[in-house]
Simulated scan of single mutants.
Amino acid sequence: MNNNSNDSVKNVASRISVEQAEEWSEKFRNWHYYPEHVIPAVPEIEGVENVHMTDVPTVFQLPDDPLYYMSFLGYDGRGYQSFIADSEDLVNWRNIRLAMSYGPEGEFDFGGRVIGAYQYEDYDLKAPRILKKRDGLYYSLYLAFPRQGGYELPPGSQGIAASSDGIAWERVKEDPILSVFDEKCGNWEKDCIFLPWLVEHDGRFYNFYNAAKGKFEQMGLATSQDLYQWNRYTGNPILSNGEDGSFHEVFCSDAKVFWDEDHWSMFFFGVGRGGAHIMMAYSRDLEHWTIDPEPLYKSGGHPAGLDSQYAHKISIVWNPSNETFYMYYNAVGEKGRGIGLLTSKPL
């Protein structure tokens, strides 16, 4: 049997049916609402003014530290900066401080930096979100924009940052790791590259990222041996837009990938049917994915109107003390763009 035939057999064996995807999604349905944003659209940040939108929550933990940490972006009219808050109970977040600010003028990250694609010690869905050190440093991939003066001014790209304490982050590679100017940039991603998500598996790094051509966003994959040099997967995009009228007909964006018993589960958001919705896809090999066409959670569900416009960009963590999933998400609605919380059990 030739190599192409071997690949075909592997692809068939790794395929997951839509029916199986729907079955795996059942445990992620029926969420309970926290009544307010846990990080409001206008948070109080000492020494920082004018932040009036918050977005992209990502929860992490530090070794031998009982606190939980959450990074998120704050938009101040110029662009993006990354902030970090801490919590003892996963509900009350405090002590917000600047984690990574604007890059130097004229460089690819001058318009802002959004950390959150961390290297974790363990990518199991229920594992603690503890950051892993390599050569004495923690690492995160980050979203970057080149210009200031607006929200998501293209063309976005991605960089790599490191930190000695998990709080203050600095760029560690002069050039972007993924850019629309790369020789192998695909036609589907030629207009703007957006958020990364990092997975380490079997000695290899996987970068799941969404990117745009025109008004459409799809999901791509790049791989690396060292975090610094990345190769795009030849089968990109790995998640494509759905049919007209589907919940992901315009966007498949912002992957969050975890190992779940015997398969990989991807939380992402789809845009379609007039909203942004939290959705799921599943894989056995990190390359071939099956989308559950029915969202886990549709925008407009929150009784206080927090997500009447959008529900997207999640971060999920398991709390073993009460055996509950806490799912943070960007809830955009009647109280602005802030960080909301859904839980798998009532708190």
Rank of each mutant, 00 (worst) to 15 (best):
Lys256Tyr: 13
Gly300Ala: 07
Ser240Thr: 15
Val271Asp: 09
Ile291Gly: 08
Tyr310Pro: 00
Ile278Leu: 10
Gly301Phe: 05
Asp292Lys: 00
Ile314Asp: 14
Thr290Val: 02
Thr234Leu: 14
Asp260Gly: 00
Thr234Cys: 01
Leu286His: 06
Asp260Pro: 03
His248Gly: 07
Met280Ser: 12
Asp292Ser: 09
Met279Gly: 03
Arg273Pro: 04
His302Asp: 06
His302Tyr: 07
Pro293Ala: 12
Trp230Cys: 11
Gly242Tyr: 09
His277Trp: 10
Ile278Gln: 12
Ser246Lys: 01
Glu243Trp: 00
Tyr297Asn: 07
Glu243Phe: 12
His312Met: 14
Glu287Phe: 06
Met280Thr: 14
His302Arg: 08
Ile314Met: 08
Ser283Leu: 04
Trp264Ala: 01
Leu286Ala: 00
Tyr310Met: 15
Phe268Leu: 03
Ser246Tyr: 02
Arg284Phe: 12
Gly275Phe: 03
Arg273Glu: 13
Asp285Ile: 12
Trp230Ile: 12
Ala255Asp: 04
Glu294Arg: 12
Arg273Tyr: 03
Phe267Arg: 09
Glu249Ile: 04
Ser253Lys: 04
His288Arg: 15
Gly272Arg: 08
Ile238Asp: 10
Ile278Tyr: 04
Trp230Ser: 03
Leu239Pro: 01
Phe267Glu: 02
Glu287Ile: 13
Ala255Gly: 02
Val250Asp: 09
Gly301Asp: 09
Gly274Lys: 03
Lys256Ser: 11
Gly235Tyr: 06
Ala281Thr: 08
Val250Cys: 05
Asp254Arg: 10
Leu286Asp: 02
Trp259Gly: 06
Trp230His: 02
Met266Asp: 04
Ser283Gly: 10
Tyr297Leu: 15
Ala304His: 14
His288Thr: 12
Ile291Pro: 03
Phe268Glu: 07
Met266Leu: 15
Gly275Pro: 01
Thr290His: 03
Asp285Phe: 11
Asp262Glu: 15
Leu306Lys: 05
Pro293Ser: 13
His288Ala: 05
Trp264Pro: 05
His312Asn: 10
Asn236Phe: 04
Val257Arg: 06
Tyr297Ala: 08
Lys313Ser: 14
Ser240His: 08
Phe268Ile: 00
Trp264Cys: 10
Phe251Gln: 13
Ser265Asn: 05
His248Met: 01
Ala255Cys: 15
Val250Glu: 08
Gly242Phe: 10
Met279Thr: 08
Ile314Cys: 14
Asp285Lys: 08
Pro295Met: 12
Val250Ile: 13
His302Leu: 10
Ser265Asp: 01
Ser315His: 09
Ser315Ala: 11
Tyr282Phe: 15
Asp244Arg: 14
Ser299Val: 01
Ser283Glu: 07
Met279Gln: 12
Trp259Pro: 02
Phe269Ser: 06
Phe247Ala: 13
Gly305Asn: 10
Arg273Gly: 11
Leu296Gly: 04
Arg232Glu: 06
Ile291Asp: 07
Lys298Gln: 11
Arg284Asn: 11
Tyr282Val: 05
Val271Gln: 13
Phe258His: 03
Pro295Arg: 05
Gly300Lys: 09
Asp254Thr: 14
Ala281Met: 00
Glu243Leu: 12
